[in-house]
Structure formats: C-alpha cells, structure tokens
C-alpha cells in the first residue's frame, strides 16, 4: 500500500525551444547594436596661449587642402600614400618644424584627417590648422596658394 501512497514522479522534459528563441533574440540584439571596436581617436592637446613669433625660432611649413580635397605640399599635389614621406622631408629641414594645414573653403574633413595622421606618422609634433583667409593674415607669402 505504501507504494500507492507515494506520489508518482514523472520525468519531465524541458522544452528547449523558448530558450533557443531567447538566445537568438539576444544574439540578434547584440549583433545589431554593437560596433566591434571600429572607432579610433586622435588626441590634440590645445596650446595654452597664442605664439608670438612666427619665423625666428621655428619653420612653418604649409600644407594645403584644396576645395577639391587634393593635398598640396610645396606646390605639388600628392596622393595620400605619399604624404608621410613628404612630411618626413619637411621635418628634416629644421630642428623645429610646425606644420600649418591650410584649408580652402569646401575641403572635407576626411582630407584633413589624412593630413593630420600623416603628420603624426612622420613625427611632426606641432600642427596648426587654419582656414585659408586666416593663414593669409598670418603669412602673406602664402597668398599665392603655396606655389600653385
């Protein structure tokens, strides 16, 4: 009689289907919202004050980004791959070289990033970025467009 009194335990199989559904939903969620470490950063420490001298203690080398996003150094239009070697040449001209990136109206951000990265890659520490009109106010000699 004891056997009859004991509750009968039935083996229950847990359905895996809802769990698979949830895992798939989670997977799709994370796949859609994640950006797999694709962003990078370029850091700039801003100078605390305006530099007084422009020509005596360092060399200012202008790089032009034209309206059509072409990049010019010393009047030569250069492809992106040739920027770094050219900037290494600029760096070797003087003990302290400041690169002045001169941007024409209409030039896009991508071209500016190419120039900044090439300068960093060439080891140029001092980078100034100016609009064409501001650059002409600082250095009237570049009003001709840097030898264009």
């Amino acid at each position: 009689m004891d056997i009859l009194d004991k509750p009968v335990r039935r083996s229950r199989k847990i359905s895996l289907t809802p769990m698979i559904d949830i895992v798939f939903l989670l997977l799709i969620f994370f796949m859609l919202i994640n950006t797999i470490g694709s962003t990078q950063v370029l850091r700039f420490a801003t100078p605390s004050g305006e530099r007084k001298s422009t020509e005596k203690d360092f060399t200012l080398s202008p790089v032009f980004i034209r309206s059509d996003n072409s990049i010019q150094i010393d009047g030569k239009t250069l492809p992106v791959q040739a920027l770094k070697p050219e900037m290494e040449k600029l760096k070797s001209r003087a003990t302290e070289v400041t690169l002045m990136i001169v941007v024409e109206p209409g030039a896009k951000n991508q071209a500016l990033i190419y120039v900044i990265e090439a300068a960093r890659g060439a080891g140029l520490k001092n980078i100034a970025m100016k609009k064409l009109e501001d650059a002409q106010a600082i250095l009237p000699s570049i009003s001709d467009g840097g030898g264009q």
Binding site: T39, Q40, L42, F44, A45, T46, S48
Partner: peptide, 11 residues
Amino acid sequence: NIEEIVILTEH
C-alpha cells in the same frame, strides 16, 4: 580653455 580635443575616426 578646453585642454584636450579628441577627434574620432573609423578604422
């Protein structure tokens, strides 16, 4: 007087 500016790029 912002001391640092960080520009984000994409790999």
